[in-house]
Design a protein around this nucleic acid. Sequence first.
DNA 1: ATGCTATAGGAAACCGCTTTACTATCCACG
DNA 2: CGTGGATAGTAAAGCGGTTTCCTATAGCAT
Lengths: 337, 337
Amino acid sequence: MTTIDEVAQLAGVSPATVSKVLNNRPYVSAEKRALIERVIAETGFVPSQRARGLSKRRSYIFGMLIPYTSNQLFADPHLLECIRGIEDVANTHDYNMLLSTARAPAEAASACVRLLRSDVIDGAIVLETIDLQPFTEVLQQHDAPMVAIGYAQGTALHAIHADDYGGALSAMHYLLSLGHRRIGIVSSVLRPFALEERLRGVRVALEARGLCLNEQLIALGDFSSISGEAAGRALLAQPEPPTAIFALNDRMAIGVMRAARELNISIPEQLSVIGFDDIPTASMATPPLTTVRQPGFALGDTAANVLFALLDGSMPPPAAVIPTELIVRGTTAPPLH
Amino acid sequence: MTTIDEVAQLAGVSPATVSKVLNNRPYVSAEKRALIERVIAETGFVPSQRARGLSKRRSYIFGMLIPYTSNQLFADPHLLECIRGIEDVANTHDYNMLLSTARAPAEAASACVRLLRSDVIDGAIVLETIDLQPFTEVLQQHDAPMVAIGYAQGTALHAIHADDYGGALSAMHYLLSLGHRRIGIVSSVLRPFALEERLRGVRVALEARGLCLNEQLIALGDFSSISGEAAGRALLAQPEPPTAIFALNDRMAIGVMRAARELNISIPEQLSVIGFDDIPTASMATPPLTTVRQPGFALGDTAANVLFALLDGSMPPPAAVIPTELIVRGTTAPPLH
DNA sequence: ATGCTATAGGAAACCGCTTTACTATCCACG
DNA sequence: CGTGGATAGTAAAGCGGTTTCCTATAGCAT
């Protein structure tokens, strides 16, 4: 392993000068700089992050905390996009990402504290599906750079989330404008705040037309397509079935489509379906699913950018909302008659 | 941030003594040890991994390299189990896991070299879906601890994989012993070596009965359930359809079941289906899927253990094969007639 | 010529912990 | 009673970079 001293010796300069070149700082003549750079290239020298971190008081690593319970959630292509966005930004900042999956909710915060105190990470991105409450304390003791992906109300964490409310609102507006009045909703038993916001969008859209959310037309799933299928079946088995179903995520929407097909209900003629997320399979379903796009990449991207802003000491806005977009495809049409 | 010197001062000893306590090493009297431990507890001191790593020449972090292309693969619950197994072992060794997703195949190896040279990681676990060839070079230059999850032939990497061959063999034996003779296979266009091995198991089982693999009875998918559905439909649409279908992963098997249901072919009466992996949804399907269990957790667990063996300098076996197990559930029965 | 500032470069301290000497006791044993 | 070996503890030298401070020279105006 080459060290900075070896490079210095080979170039006939002091390590201090090599350091200046490495951090491209002034007060090095063009010739020496070139010489040193050549030696570095020849030896393939790469500075040790350990040593560098010790002086700079940085580890150049941030933590990504995901709840292990997010088994299905992790499987969500949306999260993958998110991670891609985060990694993209991390790479441009020469940072690496430590993955920490917390089993129990309480564990997450203490694991995070441990990682911070032991200088393993400089900051963290937390998925809101982890209970964020314990993190408030962490922040107070540590004022470490931390951002949450999700709504993190009452936690002093910087929160980044998609415009769930607006997305649901526009999905419902669209269905209503097509003429639908009996609209089924596939929600979930477990209700992260994002879902709460989507439901709020649903309610507000209905109220704007003088309608209200009919409890009978709500079915519950667990985000999986299988649960969506069951929910769809339940809704469609009602004496007066809905003419449209808004599933609060794509996988459940795809389940609903499956249920409809098995009941010989044609989409979109007899039933309109809208999902939420715009996962890759949404556009590949038959017919392709109308849905609300949640830009995962952008979410990850801005979350990471906020994190780095915090690391650099600049004060980013306390919360960022990433816009969503209604993608109209083939599963929506005006109701019959 | 408390340092070891502060602790030493508070306890009235030298930092060297505190270090002995931290690494629980001998030559410290019981009283001093107790005293120091109390001070540590009171101050909440946690040693800095940066500094510790610098002297110990370790970072206590290993890399987990996954190809980003494994979009779907990453979504595979199986991989999740694997990661859980890895993390479990990592935790007991006080190691952390750095996640690095490589976009291009070639990128992976160079990213890995960078991480190793810059002392960010001490070793790595690589998914075999990454092209492992470039890693051989890395190993030669670096002899870093590295293990591959998968078959890594010709790469000098330590390989850990499930007994794909044996699993496929027993699945086929079972179908054949039930009396099936026309057995459809759902394979994949993309053929990682694991799939090759499963196919070999299929062939050998058939040959043992004097049969051979009929090309007509092979359909190709891409591991997703949607592709499995298409493949199932194709197989069942044949003039002389198979009486059993062995899908080389569970998600495609579930697709096959969906195809059968839509064609009003009852399972297991008119068609037997076997999958591979035993993902959680397999047991929740209706009827529950007969499949070959691939113990993801054990895979991750032993991969990590081999890695740590390498780190400690002990020589582990060059390759480890994790046994698979046929789980008979409700989708298999003797053929009709 | 004299001062003053900007540029180049290096010596050495430092980051926080580990480890290698090295010293000082204490105990047993011939 | 001297000697040797274990035990307890510490000072100081790393680990591999960065950074502060200091010196030397050059360029420029006075």
